[in-house]
Design a binder for these strands. Structure first.
Lengths: 234, 234
DNA sequence: ATCACTCAGATCGTGTAGGAAATTTCCTGT
DNA sequence: ACAGGAAATTTCCTACACGATCTGAGTGAT
């Protein structure tokens, strides 16, 4: 490999479209719960609010519809996706338990040095949130998203990565109840998964991920299910 | 090109919204390989062909972009998604092996009478294709899609069902090589899975699905690997 | 003579403005 | 209080203007 082959350097970020900015703006509105779940999203209203014409808003909403962040009712307009029911949240975590422990195992088995360095850097750069503010929780949610995406990437499966991203699970968790004061526990569990991946211990990585998801599931399903007093994990 | 008729591909049977019809029309064009993989898809061109203005075409393409049937290059237009590489096809089948055997097991365990009746009806209504024509293969692919979606539905997991649908695996398989003359084998394997589900035998259902996917994977990966005419590293 | 660069014209994507059709809301009459 | 209907709002599509990109020929340099 002496001569430098014309390898794809990578597409330089050429985003200068208004529709992209509108898309990001509306996505941010939904992610921040500035629009209530199930609320109507007016095309003209958004256009006026953002100071653009309806066309780019329409294009952005069409993309968000395929991403299942909004739903369209013909001739009636768009609505944000409603809150998840208890069954849907259960189904979501069942799906995560199906693909993510597998991804953690694969990450421990097959990830390269560069990927492990990125995972290590992510864990080093995230501080445990001290306070219980809105911004603090948002930072934790952002770290959580990056962490799980990173594990999927290290597993080397683009399909698993996309499947995880398309669940938008953090949006749904966030909307159901932002903040349960479990930031430290989450970080600790992430550290355990990271250690297993960096040590190249597939079994430990898979188990740690499964327990991480089960803990989050049981923690978060509790308020959705009734106040049925049951023994909660410590 | 002499016979390039830029006139209407077909009169759109108008539902409620024009954009929906345009969306279905473009989707059909891609699914039928009427547009080559990686080929440019002109907004104005499609609008002229379908006899509508560019706006609904743009909305349809925006939705297809989120579904990953087309990709957008800003200020340059849309292209259909390119052919899958060997690694991507491998990854796709790895993903299917992760979720579909699990779905088959769950279908055998938890499906109700109505769902099993639907599965039975699907298998009864599909005849083994006698000829090797294009239409015959399309009918087989349509049955295959319905069958796998049905198994995911019987498993009771909307997440798995959506994850499967969003892979568009039949489109990719179809584009890589439509028809390998394995219709009978496919149907036979579907019958075996169906029997296990109807009998309520989770282990047999899971195993049958896994073997079904592995058979398809090995059948279909072979021509791709041999295509380069030698061991290619890269 | 071959190659690289430049500069027109053509083509296409992007955004704006306006009008037709449908829905929702509110008001009126019984 | 309920049914019927009209105004207001909104969606949806068309038509047009602007800007960027692509294609090809022409010019100059090596």
């Amino acid at each position: 490999m002496s001569t430098a082959a014309p390898r794809a350097i990578g597409p330089l970020p050429r985003r200068q479209m208004l529709a992209d900015d509108v898309h990001e703006a509306i996505k941010a509105l939904i992610m921040d719960n500035a629009i209530e779940p199930g609320a109507r999203v007016s095309i003209d209203g958004l256009a006026r609010q953002l100071g653009v014409s309806p066309t780019p808003v329409r294009e952005a909403l069409a993309r968000l519809e395929s991403a299942e962040l909004v739903v369209k009712e013909p001739l009636r307009g768009y609505r944000t996706t409603p809150l998840l029911t208890r069954e849907q949240l259960d189904d979501l975590y069942q799906f995560r338990l199906l693909i993510e422990p597998w991804a953690a195992r694969r990450a421990a088995e097959h990830s390269d040095a560069e990927g492990r360095a990125r995972l290590d850097a992510e864990m080093r750069s995230c501080a445990t949130p001290a306070d219980d503010t809105y911004d603090s929780y948002k930072a934790l949610a952002a770290h959580d998203t990056r962490f799980h995406v990173l594990v999927a990437e290290l597993a080397g499966s683009a399909q698993v990565r996309r499947a995880f991203e398309r669940t938008h699970c953090h949006l749904h968790i966030f909307r159901l109840h932002y903040d349960r004061g479990l930031g430290e526990q989450t970080i600790a569990e992430h550290r355990r998964i990271t250690r297993a991946v960096l040590d190249g211990d597939p079994g430990a990585a898979e188990a740690a991920m499964r327990e991480h998801l089960e803990a989050a599931c049981y923690e978060r399903l509790r308020p959705v299910s009734e106040e049925a007093g049951g023994p909660t994990r410590g």
